[in-house]
Structures are given as structure tokens and as C-alpha cells.
Nucleic acid binder design. Sequence first.
DNA 1: ACCTGAACACCGTTCAAGT
DNA 2: ACCTGAACACCGTTCAAGT
Lengths: 219, 219
Amino acid sequence: MAKAKRPERRADSLTRDVITEAAIALLDEEGEDGLTFRALAARLETGAGAIYWHVENKTELLIAATDLIVARALAEIRAQTNAKKAIRGIAIGLFDAIDAHPWVGAQLSHAPTPTATLQIYELIGRRVQELGVPASMQFTAASTLVSYILGVSVQNAALGRMAVPATSREAYMNAQADRWKQLDAAAFPFLRSVANQLRKHDDRDEFLAGIDVIVAGLS
Amino acid sequence: MAKAKRPERRADSLTRDVITEAAIALLDEEGEDGLTFRALAARLETGAGAIYWHVENKTELLIAATDLIVARALAEIRAQTNAKKAIRGIAIGLFDAIDAHPWVGAQLSHAPTPTATLQIYELIGRRVQELGVPASMQFTAASTLVSYILGVSVQNAALGRMAVPATSREAYMNAQADRWKQLDAAAFPFLRSVANQLRKHDDRDEFLAGIDVIVAGLS
DNA sequence: ACCTGAACACCGTTCAAGT
DNA sequence: ACCTGAACACCGTTCAAGT
């Protein structure tokens, strides 16, 4: 008999971090439905049950993946001396991260994680203080900004998930504008009147404009 | 043999509306996981397959249920002559509806439905016009408000879904404040400084304060 | 201590068969 | 036209058995 060789150990042995990383890759490539313990096990070249030795369950795995993406996004934000610019920077950093990983948006609104939320509050809060907002209003101010940032980012990601891939962004917006113009005049006077503004609409710009409105309201 | 009696017809025969209504009841009573075709069929005293004759699939059913709740919430909002008060009214109406039906929040952020979103935009938009916002800014203004309203409502509902039922709201906030005070001073100076503001924190009030900030920023 | 993979309970959805 | 309920494919999770 040929002597049974010990199978080569995987270069990166199975750890919580390796599993989380693989889960992120799967979520990015296949979407939320793509994350399956069977698919994850196949990618890690192991059995489905092995994953449970390192991770409590699927919920915990999704939280770990979300926290990792948010932490990375926050770490990549460049320092700014100007408070207003800094707030814009944090906002755009999170917006883009959630846009790039739409499942993070779904997860954040489904089960907000303390870790990620605390970090965001802290970063925004410091800048709110720098804006000169009175102490008694600082929590409300930070809360308004964080809610707006996460709320818009999540909704943008949700829309992106269903967008028709064939049509370009611009064509899609024009089609949407045309649809609004055909709405019933009695029921939707406002939407009809602003339909044309949709044509030059940019989600990112609109998002930042909203940030500016809130910051202006804080004065 | 006893003659086989024709079984009594259900008073309300199986229709799309009856199914949607039953789905809402199930979602409210058992939560998102409670909506199952088997459970729904049992409640409607029929087979699981029968539902598919009236409804395309589960996704469509969830959308129909969500649209119904949102439409009802909007219909119940009392008319207001003052634009600012009207915006507050719409905001609170949606906030409370989503708070009462947390699954609506999850659904709205997972797959925003055109029907519900359009109606909200229209109602908010008209009041934005009354506020005297210049035409070129009206879409941005409405978009900021709607995003904030839905974003905060959804997050509030998500938090409510995980809240510890045993502890009271107040005790929970106090415990949270204590936790913030124990955070690392170097990493979380802001959160430590505003921790005490959490104690008298009321989600609804905070939400309305955010609305006021945005409306103020629109001037 | 860690991994394997079959087994369990439970889904959404389909469909041949009934009325 | 509408309903029934078994069947199918596919989950998350468990666990006895291996190393």
C-alpha cells in the first residue's frame, strides 16, 4: 500500500477571520442570497459543519462582515481640518462603501450593530462639536446626521440592487422623468412639476446637498 | 351513506385582498419570520398552493402588504394649513406606522416600492413648495426630507425589533448611557461627553428635532 | 481541538389531480 | 376557474463519528 500522505494544510487555516473574508467575497460576488453555508464551505474547501466551530451562526457572521466593511470605510477617510468638509468626507466614505457592498446596507437596517454605529456616531459627533453646536444640542445634531447618512446610503443601495443592468444610469433617469410627467395631474402635481429635475439628477450630489442642508440647519 | 354536504363557503372567499390582509396579521403577530405560505394557508383554511393562484410569489405579497400599510398611514394624516406643521404630521404618521409594523421598515429598505415612495414624495413635495423653496431646489429639498423620514423610521423599527422586552424603555436608555460613560476616553471622547443626554432621550422627539433642523436648513 | 458529512426540520414553489 | 396536497430543491443547523 502507498503510504497515506498527510494532506497539505491549507496555507491559511480555517479561522474566524478567514471565514468572514470568504463570506464578504461571496456576498460581493453573488449577492445576499449567495451566502450559504454550503457555498461558503465549498469555497473554503471544507464541510458545512466545520464553519460552526468558529462562528456561532449566520446572523453573527453577517454582523462580523458588516462591521469589517464599515471599519475599513471609516479607516480610509482622509483627515480634514475643516469640520464641514470632514462631515462631508465621512458621509461620502460611508455612502460609497455601502454602494459598493449593497448587502451592508440591508444588514445595517435589518440589525444595526453597536460596533459600527458607535464608531460612526463618534466621528460625526467630534465634528459637530467643532461646528460650535451648543452642548445640549450636540447629541441631536449628531443623531440627525448619522440617521440621514445611513438612511440615504441604505436606500441608495437598495435601489442599486434592483436597477436594470442593461440601461445606463442616464437613460434610466430619463425614463423615470418621462414616467413622472405622465402621472395623473390631479393626484401628482408636485412630481410632474419637478420631473425634469430628475434628468440631471446625481444620487451622490443629491446626498451631499442634503448634508449641507442639515449642517446649515444646525447654525 | 350520509349525503356529502357541500362544505360551507368561507364568508370571505379567497381573494388577493383577503390574502394580503391575512399576511399583515401574521406579520404583525409573529414577525417577519412568521409569514410562511404554510402558516398563511393554515390561517386561511386552504392549501399552500391555493395562494399561488392569487399571488405571484412571496416578494409580491410583501410589497402589497407594505403598500397597504403606507397608504393607510398617509390617508390618516390630518390636513394642516401650516406647511411646517404638515411636514411634521406626515413625518410622525410614517414614523408611527413603521414603528407599529416593523416589518414595513425592513421591506421598505430592502426593496423600495414605487407606489409607496411616490405618494410620500408627492405629499412632502407640495409642502416644500409652500415653504417657498425655489423651484430648482424643490426636488433636492423633498428628497432630503423623504430620505431622512424613511431612514430614521426604518432604523427605529430595526432597533425596536431587537429591544430587550423585559427592561423598560427608560431603564434601557440609562443602561446605554452608563455603557457610553465607560467607553475608552481616548477613542470615544464625544460619546462620553454626551452620554447623559441619552437619559432623557426620546426617539420620537429626536426624530422631530431632526425634521426641524432640515426645514430650518431649507431657508 | 478541530473537521466531516449525513441527517433533520423547515422553507418557497410547482404541478398533477381533483371539483 | 379554482383548490388540494404531495413532491422537489434548497436552506440553516446539529451531531455522531472520525483524526
